[in-house]
Design a protein around this nucleic acid. Sequence first.
DNA 1: TGACTTTAGTAGCGCTTCGCTACTAATTCG
DNA 2: CGAATTAGTAGCGAAGCGCTACTAAAGTCA
Lengths: 233, 233
Amino acid sequence: MPDRYSVGRGAVRGFSIALDVALFSPRAHQLAVLLVAAADQRSGRAARARWALPSDSLRTDESLDEAASRIARGSLGAAPALLEQAVAQGGARRGSDGPDVRIAYFGLVPDLGGAPRDTSWVSIAELPALPPRQREEIDASIAEMRAQVDQQPIAFRLLPASFTLTDLQSVYELLLGRRLHKASFRRALHASALVEATDEWRSEGRGRPAQLFRYAPPRRKRQRRGIRFDLLT
Amino acid sequence: MPDRYSVGRGAVRGFSIALDVALFSPRAHQLAVLLVAAADQRSGRAARARWALPSDSLRTDESLDEAASRIARGSLGAAPALLEQAVAQGGARRGSDGPDVRIAYFGLVPDLGGAPRDTSWVSIAELPALPPRQREEIDASIAEMRAQVDQQPIAFRLLPASFTLTDLQSVYELLLGRRLHKASFRRALHASALVEATDEWRSEGRGRPAQLFRYAPPRRKRQRRGIRFDLLT
DNA sequence: TGACTTTAGTAGCGCTTCGCTACTAATTCG
DNA sequence: CGAATTAGTAGCGAAGCGCTACTAAAGTCA
């Protein structure tokens, strides 16, 4: 009889688990991901710059979420504004001594200026060569993040407490990777009542000054919707 | 200096990895999940029936996807119509000898009648006591599956090649867990041109016979949409 | 036979949402 | 003073949604 309910029997304890954390941030009108510089490991050569996602092995005294948070803080020097699990992949050893299973997390980080030492914010449109599977992890993370953009108000975590609506629209455009129409964006935003106007205005060189808004979520119950056949691939 | 880019260094090889597979199927107008009966492991007692998700440890010669497929086939006796990763959880040992990390997959299975020996289709509204964390895995799987319902035409995988529109609507209602309005459902479906009518009709006892349709996806490019602020929690 | 029940399927109203063009408003530059 | 630049709004036409109310075709049963 096939082994149909072997819960916990004969567990193989030989796996190592690596966590990769893709931290995204809006930088210079591009969506950028934080990469760390790692020395080339092959000997007998001048060390060339290699790039990789912040990564580490799971330790025995922490949960996956804790490990992801530790790795994010270690590479960034601060806690990200959001940190969520994207995807797990792996199994079947690749013949190397690397980890067998990789679990990818992604995070969002406001643009607060520079990058920590030995790290760099790199536009997702210009990614360098990366270790195996990390490219797919970044792609999966972006897809997962975009799926959450209109489920959770994550865009506001990338902005300071008060911001202009043009700022907010730019964040949405970077997160989604496409342009939005100004009037439609504002209409939908106002209808949602997610922001409230302050009485401050910001002048940014030329042009009319922009009013500052703050995030002020109402307590609303989620309303159901019909089937979105138009979203089917 | 903090350990910021320790790719593959000091990997701990002590983890075991368990995969749980939640297989969903429409049964008796309920969404059901396949559970396997496991004998009570505590000794000195008459074995009471215990239920659990189909589960097994990851082996060293297979990938995560392969393991999930193996477990699904092992419990079901056939391959499911869909199998996708839902979530990984764990780390930090619970002091037991169980696996350290659990990775949940979910699948969809058409209603083809009975359940294999030692298994049972149980309505998700009447779940029995389950091993730790499996309840959360089922909840996460349902949420993930529902998020995919209008991204992928997964409902059609639960129906035979030809079906009535009432059948199709029932599948959508079970997958989404709520009632849909007949006229609106059909209007959206016809607008999508996802199905085409056959020239056959099915009479189901009383009432007017229903026309049979088949799934016939058009090749269409995905059109972008605006921000759905109204979906924000 | 003929009314009643049951299930399938459609018409269309009122409202909301969307993308878009076209406008007005307030500031700096020269 | 314009011209340029950025902020913000009005509103049109199309599409989508929820719903009530209808028609259509079968079985049931007096």
